[in-house]
Design a protein around this nucleic acid. Structure first.
Lengths: 202, 202, 202, 202
DNA sequence: AATGAATGAGCGTTCATTCAT
DNA sequence: CATGAATGAACGCTCATTCAT
């Protein structure tokens, strides 16, 4: 006569709950130290249920990576799409702002999802889609004469990791992060990186 | 009657051999998958001997991290020291060059040593000494009027991670890395980041 | 909208399909390694359906054993029934021939069904009906003065296991088994075992 | 202050204790149902210790099989060696007697060790050494004119399995087994199988 | 009668760590 | 200092079985 939730849920939902539990635990304790059982406890299902949705621990990690990238890139794309077509500087600024936003919400997740556990096949040095996207933006702006960039891929990589680093550093201080000065500084850095004068901008 | 090396060695030496074996294995297979026994096998000692020199697996990792930072920072300091006292731009260029050199030799090690296994206490967000050192350089140069940097810590973090990212990206492509174009681009990026005109420089 | 076979079948039929699938899998991989799910997949039904027809894995095994014995004994009985009533030697020869036929078709099954998984209750040393039947034949022949057998049960057991052994040995060599020399040798062995002169016989 | 046995023992001894515990448990419950932990509990060591001596559960089973065969064959060889060189009938009788003795002590073990768990490589249909040995004896006796055997391998196989069967049957009845009538009957069966008159013999 | 998502006990195996020698 | 046998907690994963639909 115990209270019984319906035992079966749509697979999507179960899968999501498991991913969410895994993500939370990975963030709290790291991937290695998190056991499957903790994940299933966190999702309020039995241990075996995990294996109805994922083949292994690495498999959830993969799913989390894909979800993270999808959402992060999406945030950036949408922010940029809001700018008028020829406003290159605005687009770059939007990139910086959306990138910081994406990371502030998910910096630790980024680490987990990108650093722990090697790719299953070592040739999976598939390009980081976020970098590729930014390189495209930089190249288009350069072609339009909006700025000067010799090697868009290099600069995109540089900016991407610079962004990552400064957000991390901000978070590591464990004070609440003041977001807008951070955005402003990063935008300045982006402008400088593409050879623009750096009057502050929003 | 078997040939017997002396069974005891100075502790320093044993410790180093263990660290070297651990470093090699961590690079080859990652930290998690490496067992203590593999490390002691690699150092040609018995399993128990490990615990005469390190308290735990995390403890070697810590020691490796410290050694890595010491050597990396040392390389940068020496390169910079070779520049005349007031040649700020040259110092920044030297930083970029030495940083790339340090990473190209040790990028994978850097990852291992910085990313795997969380700090034992989460407050160990002790400052990255490499960043602190660069921030000092940036601040001094700004004070001397050599360039303009609003927030040296921010810029140092940005540059440090940008450096890290582009070296990684270069290595990930698994072609032999052409070092000097990489150095040139990074130097340009550094100059732009501090607001300098970017004529190429070595 | 998918094409749908009728989902319900007469229980007999479903049960048989499950038994057949189980038998095939047990033979291919052994009992232990075969999962219920493989059985239900093989029978093209859902996992739970298994438990509508059998109480457990051991339960199918029991059913397979019973089916095997029934069919095996039946083959022997029919072969013997074809001999004239007083042709004892012919009956014994028929026993040997039918026994070999029965085993060559089902030697592996015999093993599975007799050796794997102990009887649920250890007192289930219920008599092997094949042996009991043969003992009856031996006794009747002895009473009729056709041959001499001191202990029919002993001799029947001996012949039964001897038969089993030589068929196995023949199969284990993994060449196609030449059936008729095997039959001839076994018949000779049977005749000798009951004290008959051993002129070959078919 | 708990009573402490010496923690280390000669590896031979530990290995034997583990094998003995495994054998006892395999006999009591079968191989599959016996867990490693039960084995180590039985040998009074920790679970991990098992893996210092055996690579897996199958590995102990293999070791038990080898030990069983070694001891069984040895018993037969020694019994036969006690007979004068030309006493073929005596040798065959000795085979029967020693075989029964060997099985009565170890019939169940024989099953475990020969039937459960397939050989690791399926081509390991390496000949049963006991059968090969008996076939040699039969052939030698036939060559010496002591008896008539058309196919020594066949007859050896037949006798070996016949022996196995009657011992099993005797044990299955779960009354104390009267050994000497069994021996006498088996000897008679052996004599008949090689075409000898069957006067009882010891 | 039939389904298949969910359960959870159980197992083989690994490995960091201890400690008697 | 050094050894390596021994420990035992912990983990990933499997799978027989249940039960709401």
């Amino acid at each position: 006569m115990t209270l019984r939730r319906p035992r079966t849920k749509p697979p999507e939902e179960r899968r999501d709950e498991l991913m969410n539990a895994a993500q939370r635990l990975f963030l709290e304790q790291g991937v290695g130290p998190t056991s499957i059982e903790q994940i299933t406890d966190g999702a309020d299902v039995a241990k075996g249920t995990f294996y109805l949705h994922f083949a292994s621990k690495d498999d959830v990690l993969l799913a989390l990576r894909e979800r993270f990238i999808r959402e992060f890139l999406n945030g950036i794309k949408m922010a940029i799409a809001r700018r008028p077509d020829q406003d290159w500087k605005g687009k770059l600024a939007a990139w910086a702002k959306a990138g910081i936003a994406g990371y502030l919400d998910a910096a630790a997740l980024h680490d987990i999802v990108f650093h722990e556990y090697q790719p299953p096949s070592p040739k999976d040095h598939s390009d980081n889609v976020v970098i590729v996207y930014l390189a495209g933006l930089l190249e288009a702006g350069a072609a339009a004469g909006a700025w000067s960039v010799d090697d868009p891929r290099f600069t995109a990589t540089f900016l991407f990791h610079g962004l990552h680093g400064v957000v991390h550093d901000a978070l590591a201080k464990r004070k609440p992060v003041a977001r807008s000065p951070l955005v402003a500084k990063l935008q300045q850095a982006c402008f400088r990186a593409v050879g623009l004068r750096t009057v502050h901008y929003n």
